[in-house]
Nucleic acid binder design. Structure first.
Lengths: 233, 233
DNA sequence: TGACTTTCTGACTCTTGTTTAATATATTTG
DNA sequence: CAAATATATTAAACAAGAGTCAGAAAGTCA
């Protein structure tokens, strides 16, 4: 069994656990279940993955890769301006979060993990095996890649004139991404309680696109027009 | 032992677990630890709290109450315009997230829980005891309260002229909150990898305040001035 | 073939959340 | 006040599930 076949088997376990995590959630999925679904013994899963969380990190890696594909798919279509790209990215981002809940949850969990890591007083509460794992390092890279691609869209927009040139591309993109992350998280609870709630992801989407336009083009309806020196960032 | 003394004891256990969760995290804190720190037997903790997650929900409730205080503290100071309030709220929100990491993590976890709840296919993966618990229902209320207070600030801003009147208050506030939530989550990973990263919560704060100003006052430096009909939302 | 490495198993251990039976301590009631 | 009832409390037992391990099987190499 060469390295290839080993990867094959790893993949098998990974896919089984993705299926199970999606169906029953991380907590409710037992390592025994994963083993059974992969048609191997429980012990063997620990040969391929250090522990359950390591396996989850592998799943998270897969999730973030797929999110990166969303970014890629948007930028690879030529003949559109940057603003249109960012608009479509936003729509697709929400679509992704909605139709791949388990994946998206994993991605947010990862972001939380890094927060924890950045806080020295909490760092020790993280499973060391997770931090050592390749998956974790690669995840930071993929995250970064997404930032790069998004930033590229802003750069493109500035070039083609669909985005005002004073904006600093990277900061602008992360602002947009922050809004996406925040809204997705925030609107669940808001939409829940009051059935009468006017705000939810669907009704809010057009408003968001409008905000994006105004922010990036600077077409806000100013109360008093008093041009501001320097860039937004 | 009347209802009063019972609450007293509940509070004792709660505070012990807050201390422990803060120090060692939720996972690493054992029910045994909580019992020991509360100077009671392990079994008794299950008399006061249905299970570990129920206890965590109680902690989360405390956390969200404290966050609500942050909102309250900002709005209660009179003699300031709405925009200034929202600026200060943003600063204090980040401050809260940073200096009460365990609390903030609990709050975000709760938001995720609601997301899960809203997705029918995942609802069953949530511990039923959590959903039945008073804490959960109250949490939805407190979340809503925060939204109300924040919205009030926007309303105030529109009244006093610090925020342009076309804006729809509620949607505007949730947009701001979404940015806060998103940035806090997103910037951990961004700030981490590259030590050379220019973007992190500190360096970004002035930029955010500027964005807030521009967005709420409509003072963006427009590339081409072409007034847009209707409101942002 | 035989030594050696890699893959694999299933039973075992150990931790820990949760239950329960029994006991003590209040509280009500006749 | 004493019996009856309800409320606290404990320690021990239970159950579930993550992770380990000794050794078997299969594969590789010399």
């Amino acid at each position: 069994m060469g390295a290839q076949e080993r990867q094959q088997k790893e993949k098998l376990i990974l896919e089984a656990s993705i299926k199970l995590f999606t169906e029953k959630g991380y907590q409710s999925t037992k390592m025994e279940d994963v083993a059974k679904a992969s048609k191997i013994s429980k012990g063997l899963t620990y040969f391929y993955y250090k522990n359950k969380e390591d396996l989850y990190m592998a799943v998270t890696k897969k999730a973030f890769d797929e999110l990166k594909d969303v970014f890629r798919d948007v930028i690879k279509i030529k003949g559109r301006n940057g603003l249109d790209m960012l608009t479509e990215l936003s729509n697709n981002y929400f679509k992704f979060a909605k139709s791949n809940r388990m994946y998206y949850e994993a991605i947010l969990n990862f972001m939380g993990l890094v927060q924890q890591y950045n806080d020295e007083s909490l760092r020790s509460t993280i499973d060391p095996l997770v931090l050592e794992s390749d998956h974790f390092k690669k995840l930071l890279e993929v995250h970064h890649d997404c930032g790069k691609i998004g930033t590229q869209m802003v750069v493109q927009g500035i070039k083609d004139g669909s985005i005002r040139p004073e904006l600093q591309a990277e900061a602008t993109f992360y602002t947009i991404w922050a809004m996406l992350v925040g809204y997705e998280r925030l609107l669940g609870p808001v939409g829940y309680e009051g059935k009468d709630a006017k705000i939810n992801l669907e009704t809010w989407k057009p408003s968001f696109n409008r905000l994006l336009q105004d922010m990036l083009k600077g077409t806000f309806q100013a109360q008093k027009v008093q041009p501001v020196q320097g860039s937004l960032f």
